[in-house]
Design a protein around this nucleic acid. Sequence first.
DNA 1: GAAAACCTGACACCGACCTGACACCATTCA
DNA 2: TGAATGGTGTCAGGTCGGTGTCAGGTTTTC
Lengths: 222, 222
Amino acid sequence: MKFLLVEDHQELANAISSRMRLDGHVIEHASNLADATAFVETGEYDLILLDIMLPDGDGRTFLKAHRASDLDTPVIILTARSQVSDRIGSLDLGADDYVTKPFDHAELEARCRAVLRRKAGKSQTVIKTGGIVFDPVAGQMAVRGQSVVLRNRELRLLELLINAQGQIFSKQKLSDRLFSYDDDVSENAIEVYIGRLRKHLEPSELKITTLRGLGYRLDNDA
Amino acid sequence: MKFLLVEDHQELANAISSRMRLDGHVIEHASNLADATAFVETGEYDLILLDIMLPDGDGRTFLKAHRASDLDTPVIILTARSQVSDRIGSLDLGADDYVTKPFDHAELEARCRAVLRRKAGKSQTVIKTGGIVFDPVAGQMAVRGQSVVLRNRELRLLELLINAQGQIFSKQKLSDRLFSYDDDVSENAIEVYIGRLRKHLEPSELKITTLRGLGYRLDNDA
DNA sequence: GAAAACCTGACACCGACCTGACACCATTCA
DNA sequence: TGAATGGTGTCAGGTCGGTGTCAGGTTTTC
């Protein structure tokens, strides 16, 4: 597979590149919009990894132009920890998925695989499992047809858990992913959000299992 | 396995080294970035344990350079608790995991195993042997298709034994692995946990053999 | 046969976890 | 500008389950 990475942060770009090469992908790197446009005009890519904040403009303008030119290359947005509204904006512009920085490389790889798979079989970003329909990009969830409003934190927590269903997340890890560095949050906050999310998931077949001393795990009671 | 430990704190380095050697690993020790770079250039390592705060610079510059040189040696970051932001940033730079100081050696060992396993088997973490299916990441075990709930300590004990099947573990060694220094635990505790794990493994072909005066060993009665 | 090593059922304890209530802050609306 | 609303994290009190110890039994060793 051939990827195009559009990212101005050099270190991060190198890190991603070397990771992707390990998976056997060819990856080309543009560090601004001008370069990115030039790359796209000359080469065919299977996937584009696109940063939003770039020195010569907003990545979304690139995305818009790209979609306007009728190319259906899947695009994954790399975005800093942000509000849901940003995500929705990107979705409307035709992004296939997004990853918030900082991210695990394992997570990024998983997303890439998912998007490529999706493109092959062309379905959508919505996750359907265990009696719920979850659209992380739009920030909506429906349990047994009933629409449920999730708040920002609940949303991201569910997203984390659902993307690695069956895996144990320690409170430490959840805290790292859910909150930013500077806000020093007690472990109890995690417990509270787990509780709130549990309540939302109650009518579904998804259950959050507590593993004392280890962490939490999202299970499907089917 | 051959590890490189980059850590300037001498006592801690010694402690880690001796621990790792107990596992049969070869470990080499660099106490600054310059040495570390020299080591990496001359030798091949299966895993690098990297401290962030070093006398001649930031461990992340090393990590950066390492990744840039297209080496895929897994790296685990050792970071103090106060440097929370380092943890996250490191993942972006291509670290495979991080451990916050102070840490249990048991925990560090578990992380090392997990990372190595991930590297080796491409996220194939599930272990199938002797009629059981063991997934340490999910914290689940199934014996003959029947799911069995393991508790924290039982899980870690099984993980230890199964990763070195056929090897003898003395009670002392097991105690060191399962507990941290400060909690002073009687040898009987080990006996108890061995008993509990035995009960779980009963329907399988795995048996924990007692070697009087020596320790325990996990065997496959096929 | 005695001592050492090990096994095991029972039990009490402590800390991990849960949860309802609340104070705080930002945003929106009158 | 002030009031209202809604999301967020803390707190305190309570529950409960994993945990390690103990005592008494069994097995092995010399």
